[in-house]
Nucleic acid binder design. Structure first.
Length: 825
RNA sequence: GCCGGGGUGGCGAAAUGGCAGACGCAGCGCACUCAAAAUGCGCCGACCGCGAGGUCGUGCGGGUUCGAAUCCCGCUCCCGGCACCA
């Protein structure tokens, strides 16, 4: 009978039943509802919201379940934690899926959201769904429009000509990703080309300096900061003025104003506005042909072309005057000069710049040495094989000859400025943000075009400009909204006359540039968010997401935050104080997971078989979270085994009685418990989830070893079991709740305080100290961690193994208390 | 080309100046079982040795140190980012 009773008491671990039970209970109790006024210091943990692409794969779990562990730790520490969730619901894939399957993008999107929402519930993440944000709803994108209008008022949104892809057959603009290799339209296969069209831009370049400077103190991965720094691309130099023979001034930007005496020709970007004016009649056909050919290449293509590609270009027939030498120098055009950077024109100094050197050699243009490296034989233009861009002394440089560079560059710039030839300038690589998209599934840009009044913003009280759901979005070669008469034709808000709406929509990166503010007041109808609530919750304390957003999203989000600050909506200028990037989960063979090749791993099947807790642990245990790596199914069994062992220990020993004594063993157990608390806590704080799990496993392994001994009847054992449930709560929320209940704890384990390690108990009473002779381990000693050196020395030298390895007196003895002794012969 | 990150058992990894390989997977052995599964316990870098034990070992070559996977110099391979930005 007794045996049967015992067998009944030890239930089998059944993840499906346990997880269903607690999921229902938590939802019924609204366990994860976040209250603005709850006690505790606020903690805003944010994970990049997903695109509703269909179903969750393990990558989504990796990105979300692991940060959930961290957020749960903060909550148990007594913080008031916001850990919200939403969907980045506008975008190209919905439109493409709609065209392919003939369903409406809205239907496709909301179906996917429903599926994915249910999957996130499986995960056991502590999401407060009442704060969910879905960006394709008018309640959300209305505020994209509102923010756009505020930016328009301040000149931060503007309309300008920009080069875009144009398909002559479909008569439409194409997105960059619709242009296939060889500059071919993805729909009709026609050759496409660049065309200047008016587009909307955000003036992010106004914030270039601030974006650069404010990134420095952020607790972000260094590589992300470096990528942003490079993207912004600050260059110090000077703007110099050259006089053209047509009478126009031609301005150039250079980082080497000290080399202007070596400028022997000039090069303009093919699109430069002065090209037609400076071109001679004799050269005009060649110039026009070159300009036309350059137009067919995208800016991206031109920028990313290998720098070793042979230089191409054409002489315009025109000349400029070098402002310091008064020499007449030829003006060329070449596609290695980019219209979008600096002034779109350069002074070419072939002796000091490799590109100019290559160009000069290709077209037999003069080269003059102006910087001579010190202590080297004089450079000779006739025999040089490459440009010299290093330090040195100026030669052939009129009054500045003999100046050392770079030390004396400021003096040279001052001299140039005094004589009116130019001035110091800082230039950035960053371009303004082109937000127009000739696409349907996005936020309509809230302006109208009136023949009488021009561009007229839609007044705030007419927002949102709703995206019509009955638009014909199958491909006709036209932007969908253009053919929607009821949308297109409207009355001018200013004069009441007939007007046309803007039919372009906004880049979906606009949606994600402020969404975390919306979580703080998702139902606000008076503004994008409630400034008081935003002030209470933001900036975000911890932002988690993929490294692929290192530049665009994170830069745009920082820009929007600064704009919101300048609009008086928030006080801070940086949205995310701490950033962590998860690595990518790859398919088992180490390649990217792919839907089409069937290498995606579906978490639902794994949850059915193992439960969410096991899957969460497995993802944490795969390796360092910031590194990612190939998926494997096998490790799941190990994690399941760990949970079952924890389960077994608790089931078998939870009922006590805990009235026994075992002085030495109980003391050792307490020390182990506290040491485990310390390891788990510091590993979680350091985002080292894999070693955190290892600490839990070691703890359970030890409890397994001890469960049949007297120590399992002591109060210390009860403390150990309760601590185990608490330490498991963030990682395995379901089974931890079940164990906690079994241990008689108050509901819920997720409302308990995180255990704190007592430093007096984390130290071992005795430690094994390694004894080395000449750096080789010869023996070990059990010593108190603070044993005095004299005593240790005597003990060590008395060891037979040490004596054997040593002849005579040691030269030296190194003692690191609690670690090792090294005897140096 | 420039800037990051990395190279440790059969595999994922740990150790960031102090016992290399914690922990897990796989494998092997034992117990339980009629048997298998499940579970529990043990072994598990290479070489030499019957054994006690010894020698070697963290991509390669050097250096610093009583002591190096860890720090420094040089090289090599892999991954990521940027790349004609004047």
């Amino acid at each position: 009978m007794a045996e049967a009773g015992l067998a009944n008491r030890v239930e089998r671990y059944d993840p499906r039943a346990i997880e269903r039970k607690w999921r229902d209970r938590w939802e019924a109790d609204d366990l994860y509802r976040v209250r603005d006024d709850a006690p505790g210091e606020k903690w805003y943990s944010l994970t990049m919201y997903p695109y509703p692409s269909g179903i969750l794969h393990v990558g989504h779990w990796y990105a979300f379940a692991v940060p959930d562990v961290f957020a749960r730790l903060q909550r148990m520490r007594g913080r008031n934690v916001l850990f919200p969730m939403g969907f980045d619901a506008f975008g190209l894939p919905a439109e493409n899926a709609a065209i392919r399957n003939r369903i409406h993008p809205a239907a496709w999107t909301f179906d996917n959201i429903a599926t994915m929402r249910a999957q996130y519930r499986q995960m056991g993440a502590m999401i407060d769904w009442s704060r969910e944000v879905v960006t394709c709803t008018p309640e959300y994108y209305r505020w994209n429009q509102w923010l756009f209008l505020r930016m328009l008022e301040r000149g931060l949104a503007y309309r300008a000509n920009g080069a875009v892809w144009w398909c002559p057959k479909d008569q439409t603009v194409l997105a960059n990703e619709q242009v296939l290799e060889g500059n071919v339209c993805e729909r009709c296969g026609s050759e496409v080309y660049r065309r200047d069209l008016e587009q909307w831009y955000f003036r992010i370049t106004d914030y270039a300096e601030e974006l650069l400077r404010d990134a420095e103190p952020l607790d972000w991965p260094e590589r992300v900061k470096t990528m942003q720094r490079n993207w912004i691309g600050r260059s110090e130099g000077a703007r110099l003025r050259f006089r053209l023979e047509t009478g126009d001034d031609l301005e150039v930007f250079t980082t080497r104003p000290d080399t202007v005496w070596g400028a022997t020709f000039m090069v303009l970007a093919p699109e430069h506005p002065l090209v037609p004016a400076i071109t001679s009649e004799a050269q005009r056909p060649a110039v026009e042909a070159y300009v036309e050919q350059a137009r067919r290449q995208s800016e991206i293509e031109r920028q990313s072309t290998d720098a070793t590609r042979p230089k191409t270009g054409v002489f315009t027939g025109g000349y400029a005057v070098n402002p310091v030498t008064d020499e007449r120098i030829p003006v060329w055009i070449a596609d290695y000069v980019l219209m979008g950077y600096g002034t779109g024109a350069i002074m070419a100094v072939p002796s000091g710049d490799q590109r100019d050197f290559d160009f000069a050699r290709a077209f037999d243009l003069p080269i003059r040495v102006v910087v001579q490296p010190e202590g080297e034989p004089p450079l000779d233009p006739a025999t040089m094989t490459e440009a010299y861009a290093g330090d040195g002394v100026l030669v052939n440089s009129g009054p500045m000859t003999g100046k050392r560079v770079p030390e004396q560059v400021p003096e040279i710039v001052a001299w140039l400025a005094e004589s009116g030839r130019g001035e110091a300038e800082v230039t950035y690589r960053l371009r303004d943000w082109l937000i127009s998209r000739q696409r349907y599934w996005g936020t309509p840009i809230p302006v109208v075009y009136c023949d009488a009044c021009g561009i007229v913003p839609v007044p705030d009280d007419q927002l949102p400009v709703e995206l019509p759901l009955d638009a014909e979005f199958t491909p006709t070669g036209q932007s969908p909204l253009v053919s929607h008469a009821a949308f297109l034709h409207t009355a001018c808000p200013r004069c009441g006359g007939p007007a046309r709406r803007e039919t372009d929509t906004m880049d979906t990166f606009v949606d994600s540039s402020w969404y975390w503010f919306r979580y703080t007041s998702p139902d606000d109808v008076s503004g994008p968010f409630d400034p008081a609530k935003a002030a209470a919750w933001t900036p975000v304390d911890l932002y988690c997401g993929g490294i692929e957003h290192a530049i665009l999203h994170l830069l745009y989000a920082r820009f929007f935050t600064k704009v919101c600050r300048d609009l008086g909506l928030v006080e801070h200028g940086e949205p995310f104080l701490r950033l962590r990037n998860q690595g990518m989960i790859l398919a088992e063979e180490g390649t990217k997971m792919s839907k089409s090749r069937g290498t995606q791993v579906a978490p639902d099947d794994l949850v059915r078989e193992y439960g969410a807790d096991t899957l969460r642990l497995h993802l944490m245990y795969l390796g360092p979270w910031e590194q990612g790596g190939p998926w494997n199914n096998r490790g799941l069994d190990g994690m399941q085994k760990f949970i079952r062992r924890a389960w077994t220990v608790v089931q078998e020993t939870a009922d006590g009685p805990f009235d026994g004594t075992a002085p030495e063993e109980a003391d050792a157990l307490r020390r182990l418990t506290h040491r485990t608390v310390e390891r788990v806590t510091t590993d979680l704080d350091d985002f080292q989830f894999n070693t955190m799990v290892a600490a839990l496993i070691e703890f359970v392994n030890e409890l397994m070893r001890l469960k049949g001994t007297a120590v399992a009847r002591t109060p210390e054992w009860r403390e150990a079991l309760r601590t185990l449930a608490l330490l498991m709560a963030p990682s395995t929320p379901f089974v931890a709740e079940e164990l906690w209940e079994r241990l008689g704890g108050d509901y819920s384990v997720h409302h308990q305080a995180w255990p704190v390690a007592d430093p007096a108990l984390t130290a071992r009473a005795l430690v094994e100290v390694v004894v080395q002779v000449a750096g080789k381990v010869r023996d070990r000693l059990l010593l108190a961690p603070d044993a005095p050196e004299a005593e240790v020395r005597a003990q060590v030298l008395a060891l037979p193994k040490v004596a054997a390895a040593l002849s005579g007196e040691p030269r030296k003895l190194v003692y690191v208390p609690g670690r090792l002794v090294n005897v140096v012969p």
